[in-house]
C-alpha cells in the first residue's frame, strides 16, 4: 500500500492541488496584484492592467479612510471578546459533558445544533431576540430582571459588540466544545489518579494536568475562533448591518465597493490584503505561542 501511495502520490494529490490553486492561490494572487491598480470590477480604469497601476495609492486610501480604521479596531475588540467568550464557554461545556455519564450524547448534539444555522438566518433570529425578548420581555423594567445594558443591544456600538459576541458564542461554542472533548478524552486517566493519590485537588488537577495536556486542542480552537471572528460577515449584516458604528472589517470591505461609483475594487482589494496580513500575523503568532506550551506525554 505504501508503495502504491509513493508511486501515485502526485496523481492522487493533483485534484486537491488544482482546487487549491484555482480557488485559493490564484484568486489571492490576482487580488494582491489588483490591489495596486484601479480595478473597477469588470475593467481597469485607464486602460490595461499596466496602465492602471497606481502604486501604493489604494493602501494610502485604505488607511486614510476613517471607516476602515474604525472597522479594523472594532473588529479587533470584537475578536478579543468573542475568542475569550467562545473558548471559556466551550471549555466549560466540554468539562461538564466529560463528567456526566448519562445523556452526554444528547447534550453534545443540542450544544452543537446552533452551528448548523447559517449566519444570515442566525443574525435575523438574534435580532428578534435582542429587540423583543431581551428588550421587552427579559430585561425591561417590567421584565424578569431590569438590566438596561441588555436592552436595545443593536442600537449602540459597544452593546452591539457584545451582542455579536453573545450570538457567535451561542453559535460556535458547541463546535469548539467537540474539539475540547476530543482533547480531554486523549488525556490518560491514570495521570488524574496519580495526582489524586498525591493529594491534588480539582483546581490543581485542572491547571497542572488538564490545561497543559489540552494545549493542542487550545491551539486549534484559538486559531479557528480568531480566524472566524476576524472574518465575520453574515451575522454582522443581518444583526446590525453596521449601524451605530458596528461595521466589522469584512462588511467594511464589502461596502467599500458600494460607497462610490464606479466601484473602487482596487481600494477594497487593498483593504482585504491589509486584513489578510494582520490576520495571518496574529494567527501565526498565536499558533507559535500556544505550540510552545504544548507538552508531550
Amino acid at each position: 500500500m505504501d508503495r502504491y501511495y509513493k508511486r501515485w502520490f502526485w496523481l492522487l494529490v493533483l485534484p486537491a492541488i488544482l482546487l487549491f490553486v484555482c480557488i485559493i492561490a490564484l484568486p489571492f494572487l490576482i487580488g494582491a496584484v489588483y490591489s495596486f491598480t484601479s480595478w473597477r470590477g469588470t475593467y481597469f480604469a485607464g486602460g490595461s492592467l499596466a496602465q492602471s497601476f497606481v502604486g501604493l495609492d489604494n493602501y494610502r486610501s485604505a488607511f486614510a479612510n476613517e471607516q476602515f480604521v474604525h472597522a479594523l479596531l472594532y473588529t479587533t475588540l470584537y475578536t478579543v471578546v468573542a475568542v475569550i467568550a467562545i473558548n471559556l464557554v466551550a471549555l466549560a461545556l466540554a468539562l461538564m459533558l466529560n463528567n456526566i455519564r448519562r445523556g452526554a450524547g444528547l447534550f453534545r448534539t443540542v450544544f452543537f445544533l446552533p452551528n448548523m444555522l447559517g449566519g444570515l438566518a442566525m443574525g435575523f433570529v438574534w435580532q428578534f431576540i435582542f429587540q423583543v425578548v431581551y428588550t421587552e420581555l427579559l430585561f425591561s423594567p417590567d421584565g424578569i430582571l431590569h438590566v438596561e445594558f441588555l436592552r436595545y443591544m443593536t442600537q449602540d456600538g459597544t452593546k452591539a459588540l457584545f451582542a455579536l459576541a453573545i450570538m457567535t458564542t451561542w453559535q460556535s461554542a458547541g463546535y469548539m466544545m467537540l474539539i475540547y472533548i476530543g482533547g480531554l478524552n486523549a488525556i490518560p486517566g491514570d495521570l488524574y489518579e496519580a495526582a489524586q493519590i498525591d493529594g491534588a485537588g480539582p483546581v490543581r488537577r485542572f491547571f497542572k494536568i488538564t490545561l497543559p495536556l489540552l494545549m493542542p486542542s487550545i491551539t486549534v480552537v484559538l486559531f479557528l475562533t480568531l480566524a472566524n471572528s476576524f472574518k465575520l460577515l453574515d451575522q454582522n449584516v443581518a444583526l446590525t448591518d453596521g449601524a451605530f458604528g458596528s461595521r466589522l472589517i469584512a462588511l467594511q470591505i464589502l461596502r467599500t465597493t458600494q460607497d462610490i461609483t464606479p466601484p473602487n475594487y482596487g481600494v477594497a482589494q487593498a483593504q482585504a490584503v491589509i486584513f489578510f496580513v494582520i490576520v495571518a500575523i496574529i494567527s501565526l503568532l498565536q499558533v507559535w505561542l500556544t505550540r510552545r506550551k504544548e507538552v508531550e506525554f
Binding site: 500500500m1 502504491y4 501515485w8 496523481l11 492522487l12 493533483l14 485534484p15 488544482l18 482546487l19 484555482c22
Partner: peptide, 22 residues
C-alpha cells in the same frame, strides 16, 4: 479487491483533475 480499489482511486483522481483542467 485491493488492486481494484487502488485502480479506482487512481481513475477518480485522474478524472477529477481532467474535469478541473478542462
Amino acid at each position: 479487491m485491493h488492486t481494484h480499489r487502488k485502480a479506482w482511486m487512481g481513475v477518480c483522481a485522474a478524472l477529477l483533475s481532467a474535469v478541473l483542467l478542462s
